[in-house]
């Protein structure tokens, strides 16, 4: 598999990259870790005239907490996210999700910005990011804007990105208090893309009542979705395992997941429920430990 010819551009700074995008945007593709773009080019499904390699932009690789926000640079790799002490402490859901992506080699190369931009309907991050109510920061020569992940991903491989824009950062609101979370991923074989993935987050109040419940799912729709029926069912309750059993059944409400050679729509619905249950049980037990 050999891609058609293309011109490789290697910007040395973010500004230079943005200028290149301003000039070639419609004909250009951004190359970060390469785990999605290169296979597509080898299959000749992507045929960019220009490939802009972002590897020199070290300024886009960082994880930091500022005020009530955690900021993750777009070029931060999955393995950096997986092993970040800050994230493990302050946003373990993202670190756990990163640790379940692909295999070691993929995690060493792939970046969070690249994954979000590619918007594979089976990608892991989006489930966690919608549960965390995260935002994507987009930059172009014309300025900067922030979009909620749930609005940014429009469908399979479709996002709200302008050809002249580049993802610079993911912003995650810090969640304090008795927080528990879990990302449950169903694969048949190690290292595969998720059949279904469910991220759950529970925040307990001082009296043990669930103040906030968030459930994000991947693999069950055209993009990531929140299981709002489940969230509403549990919020404001002193949650028991029976509550979770009951609420999980709402995870597939209104869903019409795709059928493909890996799984049928019906099975994906059933798995959305099963994994929601698993994720909530773990999240609850974590949250209780901190209460």
């Amino acid at each position: 598999m050999y891609p058609p010819s293309f011109k490789l551009l290697v910007p040395q700074s973010l500004d230079e990259a943005l200028k290149m995008l301003a000039e070639h945007g419609g004909e250009a593709k951004l190359l970060a870790g390469g785990h999605s773009l290169i296979p597509l080019m080898k299959l000749r499904l992507a045929r960019p005239a220009y490939v802009i390699y972002l590897g020199k932009l070290k300024e886009l690789s960082y994880i930091r907490e500022e005020g009530d926000t955690i900021r993750v640079g777009a070029l931060t790799t999955h393995s950096e996210i997986e092993s970040s002490e800050l994230l493990r402490e302050r946003c373990p859901l993202l670190a756990e999700t990163a640790s379940k992506i692909g295999d070691r080699q993929v995690r060493n190369m792939g970046t969070i910005g690249g994954s979000i931009a590619h918007a594979d309907p089976a990608a892991d991050y989006p489930a966690a990011l919608v549960a965390l109510e995260a935002e994507v920061v987009l930059k172009s020569v014309n300025g900067e804007r922030a979009v909620k992940v749930s609005d940014f991903i429009k469908g399979p491989y479709i996002t709200d990105i302008d050809p002249q824009e580049l993802i610079t950062e993911i912003r995650i609101p810090v969640v304090n208090g008795a927080v528990g979370s879990s990302y449950e991923k169903l694969v048949f074989r190690a290292s595969d893309f998720a059949i279904v993935g469910v991220a759950a987050l529970i925040v307990l109040g001082k009296d043990g009542t669930a103040e906030r419940v968030r459930v994000g799912m991947t693999g069950v729709a055209e993009g990531p979705v929140r299981a709002q029926g489940v969230e509403e069912e549990l919020e404001g309750k002193k949650i028991t395992e029976e509550d979770i059993d009951k609420a999980s059944k709402k995870a597939s409400e209104g869903l019409n997941p795709p059928s493909d050679i890996r799984a049928s729509s019906e099975y994906r619905k059933a798995m959305a429920e099963a994994l929601t249950r698993r994720a909530l049980i773990k999240a609850l037990s974590e949250a209780k430990k901190k209460a």
Binding site: R189, S191, D192, I261
Partner: peptide
């Protein structure tokens, strides 16, 4: 190995065709 009813091979990559790994 899965073919569509109209004869196209649907499992044409190692992500669609499940060779087990050491972890399996």
């Amino acid at each position: 190995i899965v073919y569509s009813r109209d004869g196209a091979l649907l499992t044409q990559s190692l992500s669609d065709y499940g060779v087990p790994t050491a972890l399996d």
